[in-house]
């Protein structure tokens, strides 16, 4: 049989030299050049793992060492190995304990009495592969969890039946003022103002009758301190731990709306000023210009000086009229804003 050429780095924590030699021999049957290190006590294993724990592909652990044994040994070793697969070696066939050791986090257990080269090799390959898969899954889970947790926008998941919050991110905690524990005891109706509850019921009933949830809408929400905010919520259905749930992402647009409102008010004032310009200021101006026209026609040409003065008044009044028209024309461009 062809030997595995991968350079496995294996730590064997085993106080019994005979057992160690046996393992060494068995390993050599299937692995070309196993890189083995052996320690006899938990104490020296601890030192070694603290120094260069990461370099091992696998750890064999004898469950009865001179300085530590059993469950406590497993716990302490697993803490040191951090993700490196640990395979337990037991000299006694205590099935119950072996199964328990699996639940503590070890990858596999082997009975020394039943050890063969094939079993040993298989156990190594399985343990390493499984550990890689678990690592990948954990990374992937973490990635999704990070997307949720680290989102700068408040997000939560609620149960469609009970309306209770099932999960909530930090941004929601920061924004709404409730702690995560408080949120998980609340229903989504607790963050809606009282006058909106009917709307919420209608929307939920519509959904239960087969209509789709509005994927994007503006809602009013209530913070813990009582502040009412306007939010744009993006909604998705999902299965959360086998429950029909809804994922909500909210964007607080209170400030944006307030800003638009301010601009709208200012524009209103502008239009009022424009109207005053266009009409109120022009009324006495029209009177003045009429008087000047009349005056012009009354003065005979022989009063040259007076005619000049009347012309000056006329020119000034016309100039003022042009200015008013200019302002009025500009203000006509201020159109009402479209509401977002």
């Amino acid at each position: 049989m062809r030997k595995d050429e991968k350079p496995y780095h294996i730590l064997i924590i085993e106080d019994n030299l005979g057992d160690y030699i046996l393992i060494e021999e068995y390993l050599a049957e299937n692995i070309l050049e196993p890189d083995l290190e052996r320690v006899e006590t938990f104490h020296s294993a601890k030192q070694l793992l603290e120094d260069k724990g990461k370099k091992f592909d696998l750890v064999f652990l004898d469950l009865s060492l001179p300085d530590l044994s059993g469950e406590q040994l497993i716990r302490e070793v697993l803490e040191l190995t951090e993700g490196i697969p640990v395979v337990a070696l037991t000299g006694f066939s205590d099935l119950d304990f072996s199964i328990k050791s699996l639940s503590l986090g070890i990858s596999d257990y082997l009975l020394k009495d039943e050890l063969t080269p094939v079993i040993l090799y298989k156990s190594i390959i399985y343990a390493i592969q499984r550990s890689k898969f678990i690592d990948d899954i954990q990374k992937s889970e973490k990635r999704y969890s990070d997307l949720f947790q680290l989102s700068p926008l408040p997000m939560w998941v609620y149960d469609l039946k009970s309306l209770r919050f099932l999960d909530i991110n930090q941004a929601a905690v920061d924004h709404y003022g409730y702690s995560e524990e408080e949120f998980l005891l609340m229903k989504i109706s607790d963050i809606r103002p009282a006058d909106d509850l009917q709307l919420m019921d209608q929307a939920l009933k519509a959904y239960q009758n087969g209509e789709k949830l509005d994927p994007k809408n503006i809602y009013k929400h209530k913070k813990k301190n009582g502040d009412i905010i306007k939010v744009e919520a993006t909604i998705r259905n999902l299965l959360f731990n086998d429950r029909e749930a809804v994922l909500v992402l909210v964007n607080d647009i209170t400030e944006r709306l307030r800003y638009v409102e301010t601009i709208e008010k200012q524009n209103q004032t502008f239009r009022e000023i424009a109207w005053i310009q266009s009409h109120v200021v022009r009324a006495p101006l029209a009177r003045l210009l009429g008087l000047v026209s009349l005056l012009e026609s009354e003065i005979s040409d022989q009063f040259e000086e007076t005619t000049t003065l009347v012309n000056y008044i006329k020119d000034s009044a016309i100039e003022l009229d042009e200015i008013v028209r200019e302002i009025s024309k500009k203000s006509e461009n201020i159109a009402p804003l479209e509401k977002p």
Partner: peptide
């Protein structure tokens, strides 16, 4: 018959 006049410059 009406002739309208206005002092406003509303277009």
């Amino acid at each position: 018959k009406v002739i309208l006049i206005t002092s406003s410059v509303n277009s």
